[in-house]
């Protein structure tokens, strides 16, 4: 007698069947999946509310089986604050890019983190504005060419890339802040652990949590997907080191 096949890998329940609009080689899809798997594994899907940003992931709500709010540019942490304060029993997360979080929404993320709002932020840093067509971001690397810095980012005029995780971890308020990558399978496994931990800490009502994910943008970087993952490793990671910057369970606050 042959046993029936066992399903060991499937689409997470928290993800919809819709095909994403992301460019080939973009790692938004991987990051979406890690969020969805975390929600599934912690049993949070049916009491979660996501807040979408403005940017490439503006349509994230099409790819999840989760209630979603679509925020004005940069304001996702304010929406998340409002929702979570009136429904502390729900699980709230924002999903934001570097232009959204580190430029126009700098005020909202800093104050939400400082108030210790009990929601989770997934911060996708790919060093460029994707949706608007490759303009310079606050996290664009020195000398990196973009459509608004065609000769490369001039740090004398545009300043240096902002390290959000390091900056937010200087706040005295307890938080969980980690930077991860998704440019190799090993990094993806570690990224998943960080994202799941961020949601677990929210479940336990512990603290604000943010996972910064170094991501790719082959289209606007003007290189192919394989070179893109290499570029994250060689050019971004030295400036944006991976690691845990703040952890309420480490007692370093």
């Amino acid at each position: 007698m042959t046993s029936s096949p066992t399903l060991i890998f499937k689409r997470p329940d928290a993800m919809s069947e819709n095909v994403t609009h992301y460019c080939p080689g973009c790692t938004h899809g991987v990051i979406h999946r890690l969020v969805a798997e975390s929600l599934d594994e912690l049993g949070l899907r049916d009491r979660a509310v996501g807040v979408a940003p403005v940017g490439c992931s503006v349509l994230i709500y099409n790819y999840f089986n989760v209630d979603f709010l679509e925020a004005p540019h940069g304001r996702a942490p304010a929406l998340a604050t409002g929702f979570k304060r009136v429904r502390p029993d729900m699980i709230v997360f924002t999903y934001q890019g570097d232009g959204d979080l580190a430029s126009i929404g700098m005020g909202e993320i800093v104050h939400a983190a400082n108030r210790g709002e009990k929601f989770t932020t997934i911060f996708v840093n790919n060093a460029i504005y994707g949706m608007t067509g490759g303009q310079m971001a606050p996290t664009t690397m020195p000398n990196q060419r973009t459509t608004t810095s065609p000769a490369g980012r001039d740090v004398n005029k545009a300043g240096f890339p902002i390290r959000m995780s390091e900056m937010l971890s200087t706040l005295k308020t307890p938080s969980y802040i980690a930077r991860v990558g998704v440019f190799t399978p090993m990094h993806i496994i570690n990224a998943k652990k960080a994202i799941k931990k961020a949601f677990r800490l929210q479940m336990e009502g512990k603290c604000f949590s943010m996972v910064e994910v170094l991501s790719t943008c082959p289209t606007n970087w003007g290189i192919n997907p394989i070179e893109s993952t290499k570029w994250v490793k060689t050019d971004m990671e030295p400036y944006f080191p991976l690691g845990v910057f703040s952890d309420p369970e480490r007692g370093d606050d």
Partner: peptide, 16 residues
Amino acid sequence: ESEVAVGNMLFGASAS
């Protein structure tokens, strides 16, 4: 932290 944030907190809270 600002009136901009106030408006958007209301946006999130209202959706509840």
